[in-house]
């Protein structure tokens, strides 16, 4: 469980967070969806104690605040910037970070080997990171967050700038972390990632939570109508409807139908509805 209450943070005149509150239940993938500059990374930074909020509280479970070292042991973070040493090998990087958490020699070797296998880098374990592709670095960056087996994992834009293969691997890994019972906080500005992966999503813009719920709830309540397009000899007919299945049933019975297309609303539509802007703006 992770609770953020009424967080405020300013950088000079810029308001990064303006009273942001979230309750992230244990054992789910919780998406923080918002455009660049929405306050996602600031939220993560405050949650793990890298930044102090101007006001507000962070509770990492059992009243634990991130200022306490033993509480930070419960968190694993894959930062947006790749935080690895280029001149160390993949294994040396993991060994070093594991030492910081006090793992013994055999534990470090065991964890490093297991995680290298998990992110598909066993064959590159003894290669220096500076020779890795962006996707490989991202995967290793994620592995480094898991060395100490944390129950809460924060992934800050973990797929930024990676190839589709690495992206799929990272998404799959996030799911498996959830399946292991961990709480995964996943920030992204890719709507399709959040929709595909997250159990719950909070849409953030300008330092505030605009909406929060499951993808279905958000889309159902804020996404607007589905669009059913019926293709006939006379041309295409676009019908906005809240009941696309029923609409299809009625329209397909009519003669001359050559094809149909159904467009369901998505999180992009939810964001557009809430802000009047596209996520990619």
């Amino acid at each position: 469980m992770l609770r953020l209450s009424n967080l405020h943070k300013r950088f000079g005149q810029v308001v990064a967070l303006g009273g942001l509150s979230l309750h992230i239940p244990a054992g789910c993938i919780f998406g923080l969806l918002g455009p660049n500059g929405a306050g996602k990374t600031t939220t993560i930074s405050i949650a793990v104690g890298l930044l102090a909020p101007d006001s507000g509280e962070v509770d990492l479970g059992h009243g634990g605040t991130p200022e306490r070292a033993e509480v930070r042991r419960r968190i694993g973070v894959a930062p947006q910037a790749i935080a690895l040493y280029d001149d160390l090998t993949a294994r040396e990087n993991l060994d070093f970070f594991a030492r910081l958490y006090g793992l013994s020699g055999p534990q470090r070797r065991e964890r490093a080997d297991a995680l290298l296998a998990r992110v598909g880098l066993s064959d590159r374990a003894d290669h220096r990171v500076k020779g890795f592709s962006g996707g490989m670095k991202r995967r290793l960056n994620l592995a480094a967050a898991l060395l100490h087996d944390p129950p809460i994992v924060l992934l800050d834009e973990p797929t930024a700038g990676v190839d589709p293969q690495s992206r799929n691997a990272i998404l799959e890994m996030a799911r498996s972390l959830r399946d292991e019972g961990r709480t995964v906080v996943y920030t992204t500005h890719y709507m399709e990632e959040a929709q595909r992966l997250c159990d719950r999503v909070a849409i953030i813009d300008r330092g505030r939570v605009l909406a929060e719920g499951t993808v279905e709830q958000l889309v159902g309540t804020l996404g607007g109508s589905s669009v059913v397009t019926i293709q006939t000899d006379e041309g295409d007919t676009r019908i906005e409807t809240a009941d696309p299945v029923g609409e299809l049933g009625r329209r397909l019975a009519a003669p001359g139908v050559r094809g149909v297309r159904v467009e369901r609303p998505d999180l992009e539509a939810v964001f557009l509805h809430l802000t009047g802007r596209s996520l990619r703006d």
Partner: peptide, 14 residues
């Protein structure tokens, strides 16, 4: 500048 300090700061170190 390269972000590794961030990982050190997140670790349970003062």
């Amino acid at each position: 500048t390269r972000g590794t300090l961030l990982r050190l700061r997140i670790a349970p170190l003062s």
